[in-house]
Every structure is written in C-alpha cells, then in structure tokens.
C-alpha cells in the first residue's frame, strides 16, 4: 500500500500545469481514484501534477442559460451549491450519492469525469443533462459533449496532455423534473446501476426526456430509445414501466461478484422506473 517514488509538482497556474502535462506528467485532482491505484501499484506515474493549487479552477458560475463548473470543484461543493440545487438539481443530487463524506470532500468533478469509471455517478447525470465538457491542452481548448466524451471503460476523448477544465450544464427552467436513482455496490459505494432522468412537460405531455445510465455497461450512455418512447406521453405508471424496460434493452451488461448481468439489467429497469416516477413527481 505504498506507491512507487514519483515526482510531485503543484503549480499555481493552469499554463504551468499544462506545460508539465505536455511533458508526460499525469494530473492529480482529488486523488480519490488515482492515489488508491498508486498505493496498490496498479498505476505508477513518474510525475504527478497536482491541480489543487491552481487558482480559479474551482467554481460554480451561472452564465445565461448554463452553469459552468470548474474542474477541481469538489463533489461536496456541487452537492451543497444553492445555485446548482436550485437551477440544476440533478447534478447536485447525483453528487450527493458519490462515495462517502470523505470522498465528497476531496474528490472533484473533473477528476471523476476524466477517470471515466464505468460505475461512477456523474456520467449518468452528465449524459441526461447533455453536458458539455471543456478539454484544455497546452496549445488549445475544445468542447465535447458528454455523449462523445465517455468512450469506453476508463477511456475518454481526452488526448495526452489535455485535462478536463470545466463542465457545462444547463439551467433547468420551470416544467423540468429530474432524479438520480442508484443501486449502491455495498462495499465500494459505486453504482451497480445508476439512472439519471430529466423530464420536461408541456401541458400534460412530456415534451423532453433524457435518460443517462451508468454502471450497467462499459460506459455511461443515454437510453435514447426509451427517451423517444416517453416523449409525447403523459407518463402513466404503465408507460413508465414500458419505458423503463427499454432502458436495459439490448445492453451488453457488466457482470461481477456483486451483480450478474441479468440482475443488473433487471435493476436498471427497476431503478429507471423509480427515477422516471420521481422526476415526473418533481416537475413544478
């Protein structure tokens, strides 16, 4: 449980950090995944660049119709932000489900997103929110959608030398209801299955449905077939059941000690129904 020797830098500016990263160093944010991996010597970086002391990388700011969340914003800050709780409650609710108090105090949104654990919580919400992720390299910056960002297990659209600089989520106006429902892996607290739902109604019809799913397969994904099936409906219990079943349809599900593929698929359906019902109930 002792990592190999490594060099450690804690630059104060983003440019300085990006310069070191361009030379092959590895970024360290909250360290909630990387440090345990290093202690088990599953990850052996030679040079760590701690992003924690960079000014102005931890923030939650509203700008027009979106909210910008800086990469080193902790889960606790997301969970307890009055701005997010009021205007993008799905992200705050999802953050509240991550790990335990200590993890939420240390772990960051940028670190979690960049790590792309297939059982992490944020990716489900970011899919449902159609979030944008700003990637910054030494020379340039680009924006990718959450859908394009999560490529595979522990694999993202990040290129070498790039970091997640910011996550952009929408301001959800009136008529929107959201919910994140999760089955906890009892030992680790990761999601065996997590379903994030975001619904909008016009009149009594559902005009928009977004469903993000994590834990079920190799990457977080949007259940688009289910989304389409719900749009234009009122959301009766029967409709919810039918739509929830679509969430797991055709998914190549993970299987491990804690849940077989069959059980995961079943749980995805159950928790999708719970999330859909909860989101509908929350539409103001």
């Amino acid at each position: 449980m002792i990592p190999q020797q490594f060099e450690y830098s804690a630059p104060k500016t983003l440019d300085e950090a990006l310069g070191l990263l361009a030379e092959g160093a590895r970024p360290l944010a909250g360290g909630m995944s990387l440090i345990p991996m290093m202690k088990l010597r599953l990850a052996n970086p030679e040079h760590l660049v701690d992003l924690g002391r960079i000014k102005d990388l931890s923030y939650i700011r509203e700008q027009g119709t979106v909210i910008h969340v800086g990469a080193t914003t902790t889960h606790h800050d997301v969970e307890s932000s009055p701005l997010l709780r009021g205007k993008c409650p799905l992200l705050a609710e999802t953050a509240s489900y991550i790990g335990d108090v200590q993890v939420r105090n240390m772990g960051t949104i940028g670190g979690s997103v960049a790590h792309a654990d297939p059982s992490a919580d944020y990716p489900a919400a970011l899919q449902a929110l159609e979030a944008k992720i700003i990637l910054r390299g030494a020379k340039s910056e680009r924006t990718v959608t959450a859908e394009d960002f999560f490529v595979d297990t522990f694999t993202t659209a990040l290129e070498p030398g790039e970091i997640v600089r910011e996550v952009i989520v929408p301001v959800d106006g009136d008529g929107t209801g959201t919910s994140y429902q999760k089955v906890l892996q009892p030992a680790s607290g990761f999601a065996i299955v997590g379903v994030a739902v975001r619904l909008r109604k016009s009149g009594d019809k559902i005009s928009m449905a977004r469903i993000g799913v994590t834990g079920l397969s190799n990457r977080a994904f949007r259940a688009k077939e289910a989304e389409k099936a719900l749009e234009g409906r009122t959301g009766t219990p029967a409709e919810i059941q039918a739509v929830a079943a679509l969430v797991a349809k055709g998914v190549d599900a993970n299987s491990d000690l804690h849940a077989s593929a069959d059980y995961r698929l079943h749980l995805a359906t159950v928790y999708a129904a719970r999330a859909l019902a909860a989101a509908l109930g929350r539409i103001a």
Binding site: P186, A187, S188
Partner: peptide, 27 residues
C-alpha cells in the same frame, strides 16, 4: 454481506474494502 471469496486459482477476489463489504453505521 461479508464473504471471503477465492477464485479457483486461489486468488482472493474480495481482497480489499472495495469488494469486501464491511457493515457500516448507516447499514
């Protein structure tokens, strides 16, 4: 919850707190 699980090769599958479920206060 708790179980020490070895695979057929004698590797301890539940060899850390990520996989071995200790009861905690909230449970």
């Amino acid at each position: 919850w708790e179980q020490a699980v070895y695979d057929d090769n004698g590797q301890l599958v539940t060899g850390e707190f990520m996989d071995y479920t200790m009861p905690r206060a909230h449970m």
